[in-house]
Structure formats: C-alpha cells, structure tokens
Write a protein that binds this DNA or RNA. Structure first.
Lengths: 220, 220
DNA sequence: ACCTGAACACCGTTCAAGT
DNA sequence: ACCTGAACACCGTTCAAGT
C-alpha cells in the first residue's frame, strides 16, 4: 500500500487536531505514517507547502456563494463561515495566518467578500479594499479567540499557571471580564462596525480619501 | 564588562533589523554578543520571554495620549502610530503578532483605543469591543503589508521567483494591481470603515448586531 | 515511481562546574 | 552573581542507494 499525497495530508490534519501545530513535525508525521522522514519529500517539496495545502483544506468551501438575500447578510454569512472554518481545527486560525503570505488559499475567500461588496454597489476598488480589511479583521480576531481558548483550557487543567513567561501582571485587570465574554458577541460587534461603515460609504458616496467614485445607492 | 539584560535586548533587536525574525536564534544572538548560548538563560528564562520584551520595546510609546482634538482624529492617530511602530523594524508586525497571546504589550495599545472610543461617548462595553476590533484590524493589515513588502524586495533582487512553494498560480491575476497599490491607502480605507461604523453606532444609540438599524445619517 | 538509511547543519534548553 | 563546556533531545532537508 503506497503512500499517496492525500494520505500525507490526512495524517498531517490528524496530528494537527490531536496535538496542535507545535507538535506537527515532519518526523512525527513520518512516524505516524510508518515511513521514513525523507519519504515525505517525495510528496511535498517542503513543510511550508504541506502547511499551505492544509490551510487550503481548512478553508475549503468557505468561499461558496452565500445564500443570504441582502449584501450585508451575505457579508455576515461569509465572515461567520470563515471564522467557523478556522475554529473547526486546533490552531486552525494560526495555521491559516502563518501560511497566509503564500496565499491562493485566502484569495478565494477575499474574492467572495469582494463579490458581496459589489452587490452592495460599492465600486470595484472599494469592494476590494473592504474585502481586504474584512479578511484581516476576521483572521486577527479568530487567531486571538482561539489562542485565548487554548490558554483557558490549559489553565483549567493546571490551576492558574497563566502567562508563565511574564513576571508582572497586566496592569489592566479591571475590565478583563468583557474580553472573557462570549467571543461570538465580540466578533459580531466588530463585524457590525464594518458593515455600518460600508453602509455609510454608500450613503455619502465615498466622501473620504480613496478617490471620488460616488454613485450613492440605498442598501436594498 | 558584564552582559546586562539590556545588552541582550539590544543585540536581539540588531539581529532582527539586519537579518529578520527567522535568523534570530539564541545561538546566533550569543555569538554576536561574544558569549555562550547558555549565558542568555541567566538574563531571560527562555526565548519567548525575550521576544515579548522585544515586542514591548517596539510598541513603546504607541499608547501615549493622542494629540488630536476629536475622537476620530485620536483613533486615527493611534492606529497610524501603531502601524508605524510595527513597520519600523524588520518583521516587527510578525513579531508582535506572534508574541501577542502573551500580551501586556498590546494591552496598553488597546486601552488607548478604548480611551478614544470613550471620548466618542461610546459605552465602556462598546469602546472595549471597538478597541479590540481595531487592534486586530491594524495588526492583521500590517502583518500582511510587511510580508508583501519583503516578498517584493526579494523578488526585485531575484527576478520573479515569486511564490516558490506553489505550483499553480493564483487564479485571480486580474485585480492584483489594486493590492499592489499604496498600502497606506488600503490602511486608511479600512480605518475609515471602522470610524464610520462607530459613528453609526453613536447615532443609532447602540441597536446591536446586524439588525435593522438603518437611519441614514450624514457623517458629521 | 517511491522509499530507506544515513547523514548534514542546525535548533532551544539544561546544568554541573568554574570564577 | 554571572558565565563556560558540554551535553540532551530534538528539528527540516538532502541524497545516494535500493526496490
């Protein structure tokens, strides 16, 4: 039974889900597949490429056409789908963020955002920029959400070993409870700011910096 | 002449600026300081802590009170200061993002955002969430901006070895020119979406989530 | 075509022992 | 108090040679 490229990918995803990105090494992956480390390099030229393929798999389907009838609904649907895909695998957000520079992966997701922006009758240029901004927001939020989640799980097991590498505690302490609140609420709030910002852009006709392409239209 | 904690930090920043985060190893740092690798562990318990200290240094001063007279001016000033600080060092954004989970670093910056939100007369809860969202946006944007910049520099030297780890080219290709446009413009656009979103929030009085909060209002 | 064996050139971290 | 010497337990990647 020969090793196929897909088997390597499956094995890598399994290690990711069970042990996390930090424990995903080529050597451990090889061992789990019952093969020598060098064998992997016949299927993938290097680790970075393998990680890219994993990111692609994680984001598979995220960019499918949204079903929501309104542009803002579509935008929200895509953003939620994106976040859910990242959260569906251990360190999923971190992996996608790390592999993001060599995208192709995220390009399709951004294009889906752009399409929704065009539906709102944003100019192509503005839709591009909005998609870009939205992508960054969702990714940034979710990386943070997931890392807090995993810190919390770790803390729940070992009783307050929080921030083991920091001597002085965060000076804040007062309002942390809010950040410990439902991450979905935090996510939605930021999303709403974006959507409302886009709506404003439509009504004012783009009064601000990025050029004078106007055409005001209501949001339908 | 004994090694001080500050000397280690200085040496680390020097390596970062000259060779990048990937080449910043404890062993190289030790060599550059004329010392054995083990010596570093008297000053810093581990590499992660050292990276955290570097992030703190990079962000030093970013959270200082903004001088702008209006809340939106203050928000914009802080965001620009944040971005500038990240761009001031090679891989600065990546470092801060990587070290972000064990923050304290970014906590102060977020608090500055929150203060500006309060000046806008957002509720404390909303100001917190807005600060949080803004932080993620700026960080996400700047990590991307900086990584593209460095890819471009690399490409300029070696004639089109772009995306060396990817076989099929990105399907897009059509509108890439926009993303190659002035990053400052892209940054400002996303920022404007946020600020306009906050303004909307003020005028509607906080009817949350993507509900039916329409009330078209012109922007100040 | 696909994999093994074995090496190369590294890592971060620890810790007895020195001064 | 601060550092050396030397090791431990790893990495990703390469490549002749096997089948």
């Amino acid at each position: 039974m020969q090793l196929r490229r897909g088997d390597v990918l499956d094995g890598a995803m399994a290690i990711l889900d069970e042990y996390g990105l930090g424990d995903l090494t080529m050597r451990k992956l090889a061992t789990s597949l019952g093969v020598q480390p060098g064998a992997l390099y016949w299927h993938f030229p290097n680790k970075q490429t393998l990680l890219g393929a994993m990111a692609d798999r994680i984001l598979d389907g995220v960019a499918a056409p949204p079903t929501a009838p309104t542009w803002d609904g579509a935008l929200s649907e895509l953003a939620h789908r994106f976040r859910a895909a990242l959260l569906a695998h251990r360190d999923g957000a971190e992996l996608v963020a790390a592999t993001y520079a060599s995208r192709l992966t995220t390009a399709r997701v951004r294009e889906a955002f752009v399409a929704a922006g065009l539906r709102a009758r944003l100019s192509r240029a503005h839709a591009e920029l909005a998609g870009y901004a939205l992508l960054h927001y969702v990714l940034g939020h979710t990386v943070d959400e997931q890392s807090r989640l995993q810190l919390a799980e770790l803390g729940a097991l070992t009783r307050r070993p929080v921030s083991p590498d920091v001597s002085t505690e965060t000076a804040a302490g007062s309002d942390d409870d809010l950040l410990d609140g439902d991450p979905a609420v935090r996510f939605d709030f930021g999303l709403t700011l974006f959507v409302d910002g886009i709506r404003t852009r439509l009504h004012t006709g783009g009064a601000t910096s990025p050029g004078p392409n106007v055409t005001p239209v209501q949001s339908n």
